[in-house]
């Protein structure tokens, strides 16, 4: 696997040199591989958003470097600008960035900034609309006439239309109802499956992350506390609780079941897996 983004000894301080200096990131080393879905979790203020804002150069590292495709993104202006298109960043509540007269024009804003031809722009807009489930007749409407969920999908399409190598979502499902959440998570999964590009998802929700990613990073105190597969991380439930984080409800239930003397694996983090485990348990009993 080759690396898309490499972060080396990255530190970031807010209000550097003043008495109000805050260390947002401290000596971060991280390699993100081509084609993986990476989840980043951490409590509020642990540095998640600061970290992802370094991936496309919105923030400049106080110390250390960020390499995209092996190139330092702050090498020159051109590289910095290209990093914006290579790494698409979709912020929290992206629907508040909509501004154009029509949905089509808004989705086309990113590709237009890339100075692509009109035909290419049109193709990309249509592709992004399809990925996000934005229907063709919606494209001519004003983005301000849409519902909240539709606006969110249009805004995500606006980032997808740049067809970045890496797509970063900051709390993509924030403020949505359970059905909307599931729909959005599935949308991201489908997008990843069909394009094969790298996806990074920042979230508070362990359930969402567990449904999405293969690899998980836990941030705590401006640093990376854990880095591993979902199973690795969730098996360290006690440490997570200490950091003010939580494991999925179903995992907690299974930890409790284990305490009561049943032999269940510690890595149950989704309802589907729970069903399998319980089934095999009851079948085992029936056999006795």
């Amino acid at each position: 696997m080759s690396a898309v983004i490499e972060v080396k000894n990255l530190s970031h301080y807010y209000q550097k040199g003043t008495p109000l200096q805050v260390t947002a990131l401290k000596d971060i080393n991280l390699t993100i591989n081509q084609g993986e879905i990476l989840g980043i979790i951490g409590h509020t203020g642990s540095g998640k958003s600061t970290l992802i804002s370094h991936f496309n150069g919105l923030l400049k590292p106080s110390e250390g470097t960020v390499l995209v495709d092996g190139e330092d993104i702050h090498k020159d202006k051109e590289t910095l600008r290209n990093s914006r298109f290579k790494v698409g960043l979709c912020f929290q509540y992206p629907e508040y960035q909509l501004f154009e007269e029509t949905v089509y024009k808004d989705i086309a804003f990113g590709p237009k900034n890339m100075k692509l031809s009109d035909d290419e722009i049109k193709e990309r807009v249509l592709r992004a609309a399809e990925h996000t489930g934005v229907s063709i007749d919606m494209l001519d409407k004003s983005p301000f006439d849409l519902s909240g969920g539709e606006k969110r999908r249009v805004a995500i399409a606006g980032v997808m239309a740049m067809e970045p190598e890496v797509l970063v979502f900051d709390e993509p499902a924030a403020g949505l109802d359970p059905a909307g959440r599931k729909k959005l998570i599935d949308l991201i999964k489908d997008y990843h499956r069909s394009t094969g590009c790298t996806v990074i998802v920042v979230s508070h929700s362990m359930e969402d992350i567990a449904r999405l990613s293969d690899r998980l990073i836990v941030m705590n105190n401006a640093g990376i506390a854990m880095d591993g597969t979902i199973q690795d991380v969730f098996s360290r439930a006690d440490e997570l609780t200490e950091m003010g984080l939580d494991v999925p409800e179903i995992t907690k239930i299974f930890a409790e079941i284990k305490k009561r003397g049943f032999d269940v694996p510690p890595d149950v983090y989704s309802v589907d897996r729970a069903v399998d485990v319980i089934r095999s348990l009851t079948e085992g009993r029936a056999g006795l």
Binding site: L58, R81, R84, F91, Q97, G110, M162
Partner: peptide, 10 residues
């Protein structure tokens, strides 16, 4: 916030 979002779109 809005500036960052639009900068991210180039």
């Amino acid at each position: 916030r809005i500036m960052n979002a639009q900068k991210a779109r180039g």
